[in-house]
Design a protein around this nucleic acid. Sequence first.
DNA 1: CCTATTATGTCAACAAAGCTGACATATATT
DNA 2: AATATATGTCAGCTTTGTTGACATAATAGG
Lengths: 162, 162
Amino acid sequence: MQRKLPQSNLYLREEELRRGIELLYFAYRDFTRDPDEILATSNFGRAHHRVLYFVGRNPETTVSGLLHQLRITKQSLSRVLGQLVEDGYIDQKPGTEDRRQRLLVLTDKGEKFEKSLFETQRNRVAEAYKKAGPEAVAGFWEVLLNIVDEQERSAVLQQIEK
Amino acid sequence: MQRKLPQSNLYLREEELRRGIELLYFAYRDFTRDPDEILATSNFGRAHHRVLYFVGRNPETTVSGLLHQLRITKQSLSRVLGQLVEDGYIDQKPGTEDRRQRLLVLTDKGEKFEKSLFETQRNRVAEAYKKAGPEAVAGFWEVLLNIVDEQERSAVLQQIEK
DNA sequence: CCTATTATGTCAACAAAGCTGACATATATT
DNA sequence: AATATATGTCAGCTTTGTTGACATAATAGG
């Protein structure tokens, strides 16, 4: 009567759920720290970083593609994207099939800047991977993927397996 | 010459590092979605949620304790904390040892509200844990902990093992 | 005991990044 | 030819972060 849950479900107790919630919070808090420091010396912020990242990752993505990944309004995106285009970090070119679309690509300048931001996060994650080992990393991916909205999982899978 | 890295380091390639970065982004994006929906029907926002969470988790925490966990300025905290106290979600009482301190605790009302927010995230994480299984969950914790700033890890450990 | 430090609070101004609503234009689609 | 879609833009507002300056009460150190 002492133990209410079967051995195999111990990881589903409140304590373990809180652990995941808190680790997610603290890890994300520190994960954004390094790029934020670089950004603080620029005219840009975290919102610009996200745009640079996804345009770099998906060259020729469209405005609506970005809107869906970022989950912000076009007015919000428009502000940061406009600044990035204005300052020569991103180029826009009309779509070939659908000429209403604006295909987005990083310029050389944009690529260089994005790379410097990415590098800090890559290093942090690489260190964490090394310390935790490959099996832990596989579990890390698996849980995160399942935290994503169910209906979005296929889109996320497509992105990460690209 | 084809394969540049030893088998055991395949998980440290750029592709796998990007995978972690992107999963962290997408998971966090959706993780905040459920409480945000509830908050949208209240007078509070995500900042209030964080305060409610940590006060609930650490009853009698101090203002400076919160400031350290949240990494915001006292002026920012003061605004949201003030609203939560004003509206009867949090009580303040003077410290017993150090009477300069204000010990923070949730009121019944605060506890009830925090619980409703927490429940949504608990459910999401519980589902993800179930789908991924206990070994994956252990890896998830391990990697996240190592993403946290090294000098903060002991504080985070103390929090999650509380 | 006196002085310095600490914990907290407060006022004011500002910045980043999100939001809604309304309306415009060019191109596709039916 | 009419409708729908992709994108852009103007205007105003909200939330949540920032800096800087200053105030008060209580603790701590010499």
